[in-house]
Nucleic acid binder design. Structure first.
Lengths: 155, 155
DNA sequence: TATTGTTATACTCTATAACTATA
DNA sequence: TATAGTTATAGAGTATAACAATA
């Protein structure tokens, strides 16, 4: 009945319990940005993972699946259906490597390169939109701080 | 055969393609922190979602399921099995609300309160560990910047 | 009619074991 | 023996429709 009151309780609860944790804000910000990115990529009919895969293939022609899996930190089995989709859509091609007939070299088609360019533009527009409230120096600070948090991002 | 070279390619790929996006660093840092948190909570036999639910119930005794779902932004159906688990473990109790017999009031047991306290301690230890490379003022800056990114975090 | 909690279900993402063909 | 790609599968996490009881 009193919907407004219920909603207020919800927000108050969230605030009171979780806002003291830095990890909470990190997760909320990340989720917000990722959601917006996913929405942006729908315009070019790509998911986040298919965009990453396509982009890496475009910038590293001839890459093999295992290298791609390593680079994007995804399991080899999970890469298969992603590449099947991109191949079905004529965006990338799997071609046998003559010197190692177990492996496939991954190359983008012209359409794949064109779509990757469109996707890249969409991602840049998304970043500008989603970080609009941060100045250039604030974005730089945020990146520095984030790179101090996770290992492997030599800061 | 040349494993080292392959691994280097993987890292080089990741760097070259993605490190220019702030969203990438945000996601990586968030994933790293969430993974460590999940690991920390295993010590108290809680998942992230069960910890959040238990903590909210402890700090808001008598809360109803729909309010809890609103507060934690999870769907009502997905809350059911979580509460089943917490109830089976004698950590929380569902009791009928006399004034609205459709609803349940959620209250923690003594064991639930004790475990929430342990969990809270584990989370604090986790935060100290995972943000160790950041000074107090850097943590504060990071929080301010993150709160500027997502909406609803009035900053 | 609308809401609370529930059931059933489905879809995505992720992770592992085991297979094939090659090396 | 080990590796590249594949298949099958299983587990989380998340989302929606529809139901019974109650308002």
């Amino acid at each position: 009945m009193n919907r407004t009151a219920d909603q207020d309780i919800g927000e108050a609860v969230d605030d009171a319990v979780l806002r003291r944790f830095l990890g909470h804000h990190l997760r909320r910000a990340s989720n917000f940005v990722q959601s917006d990115l996913a929405r942006s990529l729908k315009d070019v009919d790509l998911r986040m993972i298919t965009m990453s895969v396509l982009t890496v293939i475009v910038e590293h022609r001839g890459l093999r699946q295992s290298q791609l899996a390593d680079a994007l930190q995804i399991e080899r089995p999970n890469l298969v259906s992603i590449l099947d989709e991109l191949e079905d859509r004529k965006l990338v091609e799997r071609t046998r490597v003559p010197t190692d007939r177990r492996a496939y070299a991954l190359t983008p088609t012209a359409a794949g390169e064109a779509l990757a360019a469109k996707a890249s533009q969409a991602v840049r527009a998304h970043e500008d939109r989603v970080f609009a409230r941060l100045s250039a120096s604030e974005r730089s600070s945020l990146q520095d701080l984030l790179m101090k948090v996770y290992p492997g991002a030599e800061g």
